[in-house]
Simulated assay, not measured.
Amino acid sequence: MTTTRRTGAAQPAGLRERKRRETHRLLAATALRLVAERGLDRVTVEDISGSAGVSPRTFFNYFASKEDALLLPYPDHAERSALSVARVVSAPPSLSPLQAVVRAWREDLECIDADREEWVTRLTVMTDHVSLLSRLIALEADDERRMIEALTRRTGLPPEDPYPALVYCVAEGAVRSCLAHWHRIGGARSVVRLVEEAVDAVAEGLPVPD
């Protein structure tokens, strides 16, 4: 009896979670499509929710704004961030701090490769609407702080040492540079491979390419 009740309770919870994730992705995809077609200023939350077949109230259960719907396409953002932090701390000692950070982000980069057309469009929208960049920086502030704290733990350095923040900024800069290049070439190459090549170049002292 106990096992049956637990199974019965778990199944609806699993279905609800799947529905929640599907609705999140639907709203994010709808926001991206409409903004790509019309421009950010010509799209409202009502437009997005109506096109997705939900109410504005439902939209706000998932996102604080239309900007967030564009910048947070995956429903498990918080879990991904926490996992990346844990991966930095637990990465093999043979990896440099920079390599540990990039490896921690690999799964996110693989999602970009897998959803290539969606991300090419998203980066086009972000390029066309600079105001989104300031919102992205705000959204990533906590992730940045936690990652720097993880690097501090990994290296054993005192909290006031600037090295962990430097490593984070180099890793973030490498990823942003590679994403910009990836966008310019229409996603023709793997962004994972581009980032790996960038990290190798940094490790070699950034020699001028042949």
Rank of each mutant, 00 (worst) to 15 (best):
A86P: 04
G173Q: 04
R42T: 00
R42I: 00
I148E: 04
S177M: 15
E197N: 09
A31F: 05
V167R: 12
E160D: 09
A69N: 01
V199Y: 11
L206K: 00
L206N: 02
V170S: 07
V54F: 08
S94Q: 09
M126T: 04
R6W: 08
L71D: 00
L139R: 12
T58C: 02
A114H: 14
A13Y: 08
R18L: 15
V35A: 06
S190T: 10
L109N: 11
S81Q: 14
V191F: 02
M1S: 14
L109K: 11
N61A: 05
V195D: 04
P92V: 08
A82C: 01
A36V: 07
E22H: 03
A180P: 02
A29K: 08
Y163S: 06
V167K: 14
A86L: 11
P92N: 08
D76R: 10
G14M: 13
G8H: 09
W119R: 14
S55P: 02
T4R: 06
E22Y: 01
R153F: 05
L166H: 11
M147I: 03
T44I: 09
S134M: 07
G156C: 08
D142S: 05
H129K: 02
E79L: 11
L179P: 09
D47V: 10
A180S: 13
A82H: 03
Q99R: 15
A78T: 07
L83T: 10
E79G: 02
E117A: 13
H77A: 12
A31Y: 03
A78E: 12
S84I: 00
R38V: 04
D143I: 00
G8C: 04
T121R: 14
E22R: 12
R5S: 10
Q11A: 15
D200S: 09
S49Y: 07
L109M: 14
A91H: 13
A201Y: 00
S81H: 09
E160L: 04
P97K: 10
R25E: 14
R184A: 15
V120R: 03
G187K: 13
P159C: 06
D68P: 05
I148F: 04
D161V: 09
G14H: 08
L109P: 09
E118I: 04
F60P: 03
A13F: 12
T30K: 01
A69T: 03
L151V: 01
R80I: 05
D68Y: 12
V191A: 02
I112N: 04
G186C: 00
R80D: 11
